Amino acid sequence: MATPTAYAILWPTKFLPGTTDNYVSNEVIAAGLTANQVWPFLADTAHWEKYYDNIGQITPPASGSLLTPEAVGSRFRFATFGFPPLDIELAECVPPTATTPGRLAWRAWQDGDADSALEVYHAWVVENTPWSSEGKPFARILTQESQIGKPAAQLAEAQPNPMLNGHQSWLDGLVKYAKSKN
Rank of each mutant, 00 (worst) to 15 (best):
Y51M: 04
Q168L: 13
A71E: 00
N22W: 10
L174I: 05
E27V: 01
A114Y: 12
N161E: 12
I88K: 00
T45W: 01
F78M: 14
L86S: 02
K150Y: 11
P95G: 04
Q37A: 06
W109Q: 11
H167P: 02
A153G: 14
G32T: 05
T13Q: 15
A62I: 10
L66Y: 04
T34P: 09
W48E: 06
K14H: 13
D87L: 13
A43H: 04
Q154Y: 11
T99C: 04
R107S: 10
L171D: 04
P151E: 08
P101V: 08
C93M: 15
E27F: 04
G166V: 06
F83A: 07
S25T: 04
A105D: 02
P162A: 05
W131T: 10
T3P: 01
S146W: 13
Y23K: 01
H47N: 14
G73I: 09
A117L: 07
T19M: 08
L90W: 01
A31G: 08
L104I: 02
Q144M: 11
G32F: 09
K50P: 01
N54P: 06
Y51L: 06
T99M: 08
E49K: 13
P12T: 10
A114L: 11
R107A: 09
L67N: 00
P151D: 11
K176A: 15
I88H: 06
P84H: 12
A108D: 08
A108P: 01
A108T: 04
G149D: 12
I141N: 07
E119R: 09
K176M: 10
Y121E: 04
V28H: 03
G73W: 01
S146C: 09
P4V: 10
T20H: 12
Y7M: 08
L67C: 06
S146L: 10
T5G: 10
N26W: 07
Q57R: 12
S169G: 09
A178T: 00
V72P: 05
P151M: 12
L174E: 06
L104E: 05
R75H: 10
E89W: 00
Y177N: 00
G32N: 08
D115F: 07
K176N: 15
T129Q: 13
S133C: 00
P61G: 12
L33C: 01
E134G: 14
V24H: 02
P96G: 07
T5L: 14
W124R: 05
N26E: 14
F41G: 01
S180F: 12
A117N: 07
Q168K: 14
W109M: 01
S133G: 00
E157V: 13
T59H: 08
T20Q: 15
A8E: 14
A139E: 05
E49P: 03
A62H: 03
P85E: 13
Y121P: 00
E134I: 12
I29V: 13
D113L: 03
K181N: 05
T97E: 07
W106K: 04
A79N: 07
C93K: 04
Y23S: 00
W48P: 02
T99F: 11
R77N: 14
D21Q: 14
H47E: 04
K179L: 15
L171C: 08
R103E: 03
T5A: 15
A30I: 02
E49F: 02
Q168Y: 10
A62F: 00
